[in-house]
């Protein structure tokens, strides 16, 4: 597909997009927690693929390169974002969350999910990205090190401290100390 895209085959590029759009979009969404921003990152990522297609080594898997671009674009978005907007968006998010059909259970699940997601989101960017690549994308330490272009030891360290910080945040969260339950599926 890369070779055909190099020759100007838009159908091949569209196939490439369709193959990887889900992974790129979900990773960006997990990092930035904003659907519009995740979609912008997805678009920018594939425009970069197209414009840099001559520099991509087709003998290597495309996935790590895509993830690297996604993480970099997400970092740009996070750092550009105005800090004062965050609390306001959280309020809007809470107000506009659609009501669930099973109230009690849904509330409990939502509370726990929200608490953990907020705890993950409150980690610094480096730790959050490592957690997402490790737990959501199921990459190994070595693969994450390659994607982020850092030593494996750094990835291990970020993973360790990320988990430790997350544990502390969860233990200090009142919502989790009132006996909420969550459902496995």
């Amino acid at each position: 597909m890369i070779a055909r895209t190099r020759q100007g085959d838009y159908a091949a590029f569209e196939a490439l997009y369709n193959k990887y759009k889900g992974q790129v979009y979900r990773t960006a969404l997990a990092i930035v927690r904003d659907q519009g921003a995740a979609e912008d990152i997805l678009q920018d990522c594939f425009i970069k693929v197209y414009t840099h297609i001559d520099r991509i080594d087709s003998s290597l898997p495309l996935i790590p390169w895509l993830y690297r671009v996604t993480v970099n674009l997400s970092y740009n978005w996070v750092t550009r974002r105005k800090r004062w907007l965050t609390p306001l968006e959280n309020v809007i998010d809470r107000l506009t969350t659609a009501p669930r059909t099973s109230p009690e259970q849904a509330v409990e699940e939502d509370e726990l999910q929200r608490a953990v997601q907020e705890a993950i989101y409150s980690l610094n960017f480096e730790q959050r990205v490592v957690l997402i690549l490790f737990y959501l994308s199921n990459f190994s330490i070595r693969e994450i090190a390659y994607i982020l272009d850092v030593p494996e030891g750094t990835v291990k360290s970020r993973l360790h401290y990320g988990r430790a910080n997350l544990r502390q945040k969860l233990l200090g969260d009142r919502r989790l100390s009132i006996g909420v339950a969550y459902e496995w599926s």
Binding site: Y25, Q113, I120
Partner: peptide
């Protein structure tokens, strides 16, 4: 818990055709 929270954040999330 981490895995569950992350999956629940992105499950069913898809980019729009407009992308």
């Amino acid at each position: 818990l981490i895995r569950w929270a992350l999956y629940s954040l992105v499950i069913n999330a898809r980019p729009s055709p407009a992308a």
